[in-house]
């Protein structure tokens, strides 16, 4: 095949994959609205996913939050020697932690922990005929496998984002008190004076959109695996790359939109 033929074939494949992915997204969204009907059979999957994706990630998110909060305040103290009186430092803290990192870092943690687990698990289920078994029992793999994972990702990432936010700001306050001799009460007052409802709202919106993107992309790649076990690590790595790209894209998009307000 000549170069033109190869480009043509590749273009058709890419367009086909994008179309298929959007159809998959639409089907997932449609099934989310009818999830209540399937809660009887899918509740166990939902509970297990929330436990694994949300609760089991608490330790790692706590560690990340503490480190980020501490590092930002330590770096800030080098730029603003009179930290307690610097309003700008608190503005930066709220902008960087609450608006950006409180969603972004937990999202990366969940891509690494749960996104990879979803792709691997669903891929192995396809290979072991488990997905076919569900279809043979008239159970939709979308409503039984994908929707509970998507809902669990939303119910995990939103609280984890809020939790990361609290831990980071708390760590910043503690480090300020003990290493920089800034009174914790003063720190809290100045911090909360900078925090608005819009900051929290944007933070939650980002968490929700990241959660949908991570879950749908990870499940899509898992169910796309065909026959061979060797496809599992390949698809998992693709899912990670695509999830990170989607999160970065959404991060930039929502930040640009939010800056208009």
């Amino acid at each position: 095949m000549d170069i033109t033929g190869k480009i043509g074939t590749k273009t058709v494949t890419v367009i086909g994959n994008i179309t298929y992915f959007w159809q998959f997204c639409i089907e997932v969204m449609a099934n989310i609205f009818t999830f209540a009907k399937n809660i009887r059979i899918a509740s166990l999957v939902l509970m297990r996913q929330i436990l694994f994706t949300g609760f089991d990630a608490l330790a790692l998110v706590s560690f990340g939050g503490f480190i980020i909060g501490s590092v930002i305040i330590l770096q800030g103290s080098a730029i603003f020697p009179n930290l307690a009186n610097s309003q700008l430092m608190f503005t930066i803290l709220v902008s960087v932690v609450t608006r950006e990192l409180a969603n972004f870092i937990p999202a990366l943690i969940l891509i690494a922990r749960s996104g990879t687990a979803m792709t691997t698990e669903l891929g192995n289920m396809v290979i072991n005929n488990e997905v076919d078994a569900l279809v043979s029992m008239n159970i939709s793999p979308i409503s039984y496998l994908v929707v509970p994972r998507t809902i669990a990702m939303v119910f995990s990432l939103v609280p984890l984002g809020i939790y990361f936010n609290i831990i980071s700001l708390f760590a910043a306050g503690i480090v300020s008190q003990f290493l920089l001799n800034v009174n914790l009460a003063d720190f809290s007052i100045k911090l909360f004076s900078q925090l608005t409802f819009l900051d929290v709202f944007i933070s939650v919106m980002k968490s929700v959109s990241f959660a949908f993107a991570i879950a749908i992309i990870s499940c899509y790649h898992g169910l796309k695996i065909d026959f061979a076990r060797t496809e599992v690590p390949q698809r998992t790595s693709k899912a990670v790359v695509h999830s990170i790209s989607a999160v970065i894209f959404l991060e930039i998009l929502i930040t640009i939109v939010s800056l208009q307000y």
Partner: peptide, 18 residues
């Protein structure tokens, strides 16, 4: 319609009861 799979086709992360 029921289907009996060659490898059983049981869901690996569920118990036999489940």
């Amino acid at each position: 319609c029921s289907f009996v799979f060659q490898n059983g086709g049981l869901l690996a992360n569920l118990t036999i009861y489940e």
